[in-house]
C-alpha cells in the first residue's frame, strides 16, 4: 500500500509494540504511520528491539514469491545484515527461502500527539477510493467540506467542476456501509488529489476509512487493521 509513496523505510520491531513504521513520502507532504501489533502474528518473538531498514520495492519482490495460502516467516538476527523470508506450503511440503539485504536508513522521526479534531468522518473505504480516483480526473485539488448534515467532496478543474455529497446514515445490516459524521465545528480543507490517490491504495486493508479533519492542520486518514492501523497524515493546501 505504501511503496508508491516511500521507497526506503525503517521497520521498528519490539516485543511490546510489534512492528511500527513511520515514513515521510519523497515530496514531504504525506506522513505514514503503520502499526502491526504482535497479536496480528501467529507467533511473534523479539528478544531485542530491532530496526530493519528495508527497500519496499525489494521487499515487495520477495513477498510476491510466495502464494497466498503459504505460511510466511520473517526472521532477523540480533545485529542483522539480512531479513530472511521463508514460505511454507504445508500440504505440498514446499519450502522457499529468501534473504533480503537490509539498509542503513537515515530518517527523521516526528512526534505525533493526539490532535483535537474539528470533525471525524467514517465511510466505506471503497467509497472514498472511488471519490478520490474520480475527482482526480477533474482537478489536482480536492476540497472536503464538512457540516453536521453532510460531507462534500468538491473538485474545480479546467474542464469543469464536480462534487459528491454524502449524508450520514446507518446501515443496520452492514455497519461498514454506514457514513458517520461527528462534528465539533464545520471545516473546509483542500488536499492534493495525487496524495489522496496514494492514500486510497490502502483500501483493500480495511472495509472503512476514518478521516479526521481540523482547520489548518494535517488530515488523518486511518485504515484499521485487525490488530493495528495504517495512518496517513496529509498536509492541507492553503490559498497563497
Amino acid at each position: 500500500s505504501i511503496k508508491d509513496s516511500v521507497k526506503l523505510c525503517n521497520f521498528n520491531c519490539s516485543q511490546s509494540q510489534g512492528i511500527t513504521v513511520q515514513a515521510i513520502d519523497d515530496s514531504r507532504v504525506l506522513l505514514i504511520a503503520l502499526k502491526i501489533d504482535a497479536g496480528s502474528f501467529q507467533e511473534f518473538r523479539c528478544d531485542k528491539d530491532l530496526v530493519l531498514g528495508l527497500d519496499l520495492e525489494s521487499l515487495s519482490k520477495i513477498l510476491k514469491q510466495g502464494n497466498n495460502e503459504e505460511y510466511l516467516t520473517l526472521m532477523a538476527e540480533d545485529s542483522p545484515d539480512n531479513l530472511m523470508a521463508v514460505f511454507e506450503d504445508k500440504k505440498k511440503d514446499r519450502i522457499s527461502e529468501f534473504s533480503l539485504k537490509l539498509m542503513d536508513i537515515d530518517s527523521d522521526v516526528l512526534t505525533i500527539d493526539d490532535m483535537e479534531t474539528d470533525c471525524t468522518i467514517t465511510l466505506p473505504a471503497y467509497e472514498f477510493a472511488k471519490i478520490a480516483k474520480d475527482m482526480k480526473t477533474l482537478s489536482e485539488s480536492l476540497k472536503i467540506v464538512v457540516t453536521k448534515d453532510s460531507v462534500k467532496f468538491n473538485a474545480e478543474g479546467q474542464i469543469g467542476t464536480g462534487s459528491v455529497i454524502l449524508k450520514p446514515h446507518t446501515d443496520m445490516d452492514k455497519p461498514e456501509e454506514s457514513v458517520k459524521i461527528e462534528l465539533n465545528s464545520p471545516v473546509a480543507l483542500t488536499f492534493g488529489a495525487k496524495y489522496l490517490n496514494d492514500i486510497v491504495k490502502a483500501t483493500s486493508l480495511s472495509s472503512t476509512v476514518t478521516i479526521k479533519l481540523t482547520d489548518k492542520s494535517p488530515a488523518l486518514f486511518e485504515y484499521k487493521l485487525p490488530s493495528g492501523y495504517l495512518r496517513y497524515y496529509l498536509a492541507p493546501k492553503f490559498d497563497d
Binding site: 515521510i24 514531504r28 504525506l30 527523521d108 505525533i112 496529509l234 493546501k237 492553503f238 490559498d239 497563497d240
Partner: peptide, 14 residues
C-alpha cells in the same frame, strides 16, 4: 493559487 506546505512543518522532530 494554492500552496502545499510540508508535513514536517506541523510536527515536532522526536
Amino acid at each position: 493559487d494554492e500552496k502545499q506546505p510540508s508535513i514536517k512543518t506541523f510536527f515536532m522532530p522526536e
